[in-house]
Amino acid sequence: MEAAIQVTKISKTFTLSRKQQKIEQSKTKTKVAVNDLSFEAYPHEIYGLLGPNGAGKTTTLRCISTLIKPDMGDILVQGKSVMKEAGDVRNAIGFLTSDMKLEDFFTPNYLFDYFSKLHGVPEDLAAKRKAALFHKFGIDRFAEVKVGELSSGMRQKAQLAISLVHDPDVIIFDEPTNGLDVLTAKVVTDYLIELKNEGKAIVVSTHIFSLVEKICDRVGIILNGKLKATGLLQDLVAPEDTLEDYFFRLAQEEGDIQ
């Protein structure tokens, strides 16, 4: 099967400001966020990028979504390069991260229509999708309430629905259940499994072991910008072992924990 996402040897280095240098307690002016990282994600699967904060998960996802460009390497999304065909890549993906917010002044209803238009979705199709997604996440109850007045759970549901206006084949979620209450988190994870069953390729980043065990088919463990291990969950973790133990052993090898 052809990979929906093919990440090939990407590296990304950031220049640190003085303030960031202090926060990172680093004496160098640059930080290698992602280092020679490669993995693939296929249709009909959820690929989980597991790693601690600052490991490079979000940077990798932002490279896939074309928000930033890798310094080296390339990423193909459905055969299109993020470096050369960024517009096509954006059309094919749905990207959700906590960095991406909705404007407080508008209602979920308005914003769904707005982003549908920007994605070139025909009006009648957009209306059908809106009805289905709003119903699924219970957004219809607050569709006409300004985003600024919504609770964080409602807001995330609206963000989720809006990131899927164009029914993308590739879905990228940065920390999909972060900040969600248990009920909403279940709605979201169930929906991700539903999307996978529809044939979508899904990449999620997380630091929650249980989430990976629950929804991911394959996992990539990322530490200090490097992919330490990747594969099917059952191949990486022995039956008598847990993902958590496996992860901490890798972190120990990496020198992240004593």
Partner: peptide
């Protein structure tokens, strides 16, 4: 304002030039 609030990123991941 859009940059500060993070809404510009939502716009930048759309296929709009």
């Amino acid at each position: 304002g859009e940059k500060e609030r993070g809404t510009i990123a939502t716009l930048l991941v759309t296929p709009v030039k």
